[in-house]
Amino acid sequence: MIATVVGNYPKIGVDAQSPNLRSAISRFDSGQITEEELHRIEDEVTKGVIEEQLEAGLDMITDGQIRWEDGQTYFAGKIQGFRITGLIRYFDTNTYYRQPIAEERLQWQGPISLRDYRFAASISSKPVKAVITGPYTLAKLSKGPFYNDFKSLVMSLADILNQEAKALAQAGASVIQFDEPAILNNKGDFPLFQEAMNVLIRGVSSKTALYTYFGDISDLHPGFFELPVHILGLDFVVGTRNWAFLKDFPTDKELGLGIIDARNTKLETVEKIIEAIERASKHVSLNRLHINPSCGLEFLPRSNAYSKLVRMVEAAARAKELLS
């Protein structure tokens, strides 16, 4: 059993002494500090976020995605052919992302997230999971006037992000996670999604994970379980229907069990978490479970995110004792 996170972590610390990314960005925007200085502060904040995850007792962490303005901009901003434009509401949340527009043929110009992965891996005592916004979601949240149809945009991104994944694998990333929440709202596109996944993982030597959130996989089942990745992450907070599909979960895959509500401050009880792990363990053996929040933790204030992780780790340890 592995205690982990899905992706992002709140950027602003509680401690007034800690480096303040918010003021650093506004000072950078008004020309008061250089880009190097901003990057140095981003590194410091990343370091703090990594320490916090390790302190909470996670077995596998992410770099907290401190440098991500949002899941789209971070990648699209460095893919040639995209222009980053206005704010759009991110799914059914009260947060916004900048919409990328593919105005020319999209091209990978070299690794986008590699430097950040290496930095995190170099300072973490536990494995760092590399996270990539999946081609389907990235395409769905973008516009592609250059491309004749949506499918060409998706497949072009699948090819580009495949190169990104291979670069991360070569650098030693033990787990590479692809985030694909958008497929849950567009289930009719599943055949295209499958095709994109096949291109995405081609030649990637690392263990691969596919995470979905903000919904459930009804109507995608059973094809969803056959997708060519090692770990499948599901949201059991918004997607309560996902429980019903676990009985068919494949024996050769691991499950990302999203049972901690990453969108509400209410702290789960240890009992409730153990109950959920026990429920999942009836269908997926403990050694194939990743216990994690329902999605990235950045919807929460920093102190709430940390408390949730501490509680999750405590409950996971108790569950392990009780159930194995």
Partner: peptide, 17 residues
């Protein structure tokens, strides 16, 4: 009232609980 959460870019706000 909660601690700070990010809305987009460098914009943060406090949410009611």
């Amino acid at each position: 009232i909660s601690g700070l959460v990010r809305s987009y870019g460098n914009r943060y706000y406090r949410k009611p609980i």
